[in-house]
Amino acid sequence: MGRTIRRVRVALAALFCIVGSHAALAQSPAGCSLQPISGTSRQVLHCKGGISITAEAGARFQLIDHNRDGQVDAVSLSEKAVLLDVDSKRVKGGFEVVTPQAIAAVRGTRWSVDVQSGKTSVLVLRGRVAVHRPDTRAGVSLGRGQGVDVDGGSSPLVVKRWPAARVSALMARLGQ
Rank of each mutant, 00 (worst) to 15 (best):
S117E: 11
K119R: 12
A105L: 07
K119S: 15
T4Y: 15
V19Y: 11
K119F: 11
R144I: 01
Q71S: 14
S117F: 11
K89M: 13
A26N: 12
D69W: 05
H66P: 10
G58A: 03
V167G: 01
K48C: 12
V97C: 06
A105Q: 12
R6L: 13
W111M: 05
Q101T: 10
H132P: 08
S78I: 13
W162Y: 09
R3N: 14
F61L: 13
A26T: 15
L83T: 06
V86A: 00
M1F: 12
S41T: 15
L83G: 11
I51K: 09
S78T: 15
V19Q: 15
L123I: 05
G139K: 00
V148R: 00
V122I: 07
L63K: 06
V148H: 01
S38G: 15
T99N: 10
K160I: 08
G50F: 08
P156K: 09
A23E: 10
M171C: 09
R126M: 04
A24Y: 11
K160P: 05
A30M: 09
G93M: 02
S155I: 10
S52W: 10
D114A: 07
A169E: 15
V159E: 06
S88R: 14
Q176T: 01
Q71F: 11
G94F: 03
K119V: 13
L142V: 01
V75H: 00
L45T: 03
L63P: 03
V129Q: 03
G93Q: 09
E79Q: 14
G94A: 09
A55T: 08
